[in-house]
């Protein structure tokens, strides 16, 4: 019986990995912008599944709520406002750009492999053990890691102010 459970858990893990990879592939490869964003959503859902596999229910739900429910929706909304009909969706990768792209990514891959991946000691992903409750997360965010938490909110504030300035600038030019 325990082997069955093990099998189900492993199957879920492989499903999540496949979701993540196929979503990422679709996000990069799709020719229609909308499909790219939906691919991104599938990819993020897969990542949420991986959090679930590692035993952090709270992080899973936050991933779905924030990345799928907020970020992707705002992206889709942006695409819909600047709607391009299906016919004008064209290949944005020219043959010359493709050669350059392959060359650049090849160099980057070699560098990455020699510098980072080759030297990394791979350890097993940390499963949540012990007390990782919401209270623990809240206390550590507001006590131990308070500075990082507040700095992130400053970044968000800068983003909001910047977007307001950009939007206002656009409006004044039209007049």
């Amino acid at each position: 019986m325990n082997a069955t459970y093990q099998f189900i858990a492993e199957a879920l893990f492989i499903t999540f990995i496949l979701l993540t990879l196929s979503g990422a592939w679709l996000a990069v490869k799709a020719r229609i912008l909308m499909h790219s964003v939906l691919g991104l959503a599938v990819c993020l859902l897969g990542v949420a599944g991986l959090y679930f596999y590692l035993g952090s229910m709270f992080l899973t739900m936050m991933q779905i709520l924030i990345y799928m429910g907020a970020v992707c929706i705002v992206l889709v909304f942006g695409i819909m406002v600047g709607y391009t009909p299906r016919e004008s969706a064209e290949r944005n990768i020219m043959s010359r750009n493709m050669v350059l792209g392959i060359a650049a990514s090849g160099v980057a891959a070699v560098l990455l492999f020699t510098v980072a991946i080759g030297r990394t000691v791979w350890s097993k992903a940390a499963e949540s053990t012990g007390d990782f409750s919401i209270e623990w997360i809240g206390k550590s965010l507001l006590l131990n890691y308070c500075l990082a938490f507040e700095l992130i909110s400053v970044v968000l504030l800068v983003a909001i102010v910047g977007s307001i300035i950009l939007a206002r600038g656009g409006r004044e030019e039209e007049v």
């Binding site: 709270f58 739900m61 779905i64 709520l65 799928m68 429910g69 929706i73 889709v76």
Partner: peptide, 13 residues
Amino acid sequence: LIYIIAMASINVF
């Protein structure tokens, strides 16, 4: 509660 709110956000999608 978080679970319900997270799942409900898929509806918009």
